[in-house]
Design a protein around this nucleic acid. Structure first.
Length: 212
DNA sequence: GAGAGGATTATCT
DNA sequence: GATAATCCTCTCA
């Protein structure tokens, strides 16, 4: 007897907690991206926490700017930023309003709407790499800056919904240093993933770019 | 299979 | 002007 995953949407109160509680609790949940062409379901397998003003790796560490303003807003909204001249990354704003914390969605498994996701990412070679990495995830879900600040907890027709899903067994959740963050911020084990999941992006140590 | 390096632009100092 | 919460392609084994 297989029980269907819980498709109850998570309430906004889920995100109104300390970000270090929320991040591991998001693993195994299902993010539904509603596009004009149909919904795509993504089961989250890897996330990273960014703890606002206390976190040198956070975009909000140096205070509020036009780009990161959404992180200072109410929880349960999306924060989308553009990086490396080519890619978008998708975050969820956490914690009480005024405290700029967020969770970067690093990787996941497409569980429905696979054809749509493949259309967004035609270079993908196998199902497990459709959303293997933060920029790939955003590309597969057709996320760009027009979705910055979208409500992920709306019960109506919003572009996002997050379902309760099926959280992994506590022992299956691993933590470790974050990717791509150097300096003091590298010391915090604020990256969370589901152990052994093939969609988790491979760890790469922080490598400063060489000068040409 | 694994490692190195180029791509490309918004944002901040 | 430098940097960035990265990905893709090419090269070599």
């Amino acid at each position: 007897m297989i029980t269907a995953p819980d498709r109850t949407p998570l309430p906004r109160s889920f995100f109104d907690r300390p970000v270090l509680e929320i991040a591991p609790d998001l693993l195994g949940r299902t993010l539904v991206r509603v596009t004009d062409d149909g919904p795509i379901d993504l089961r989250l397998t890897e996330v990273e926490a960014y703890d606002g003003p206390n976190d040198p790796g956070s975009h909000a560490y140096r205070g509020r700017t036009d780009r990161n303003a959404v992180m200072f807003g109410p929880p349960g909204h999306t924060y989308v930023y553009f990086t490396y001249g080519m890619w978008h990354c998708l975050n969820l704003v956490c914690g009480p309003e005024g405290q700029p914390s967020g969770v970067l969605l690093r990787a996941g498994e497409i569980t429905a709407g696979t054809a749509l996701a493949r259309a967004h990412r035609p270079t993908s070679r196998k199902p497990s790499d459709l959303a293997q990495g933060p920029a790939r995830l955003a590309t597969a879900l057709s996320v760009d800056r027009t979705l910055n600040g979208a409500d992920a907890c709306s019960d109506g027709n919003g572009p996002f919904r997050i379902l309760a899903g099926s959280p992994p067994a506590p022992g299956a959740v691993r933590t470790g240093p974050r990717t791509g963050v150097g300096g003091e911020g590298a010391g915090h084990p604020w990256r969370y993933w589901i152990d052994g999941d093939p969609t988790v992006s491979p760890y790469r140590a922080h490598t400063p770019r060489k000068r040409s």
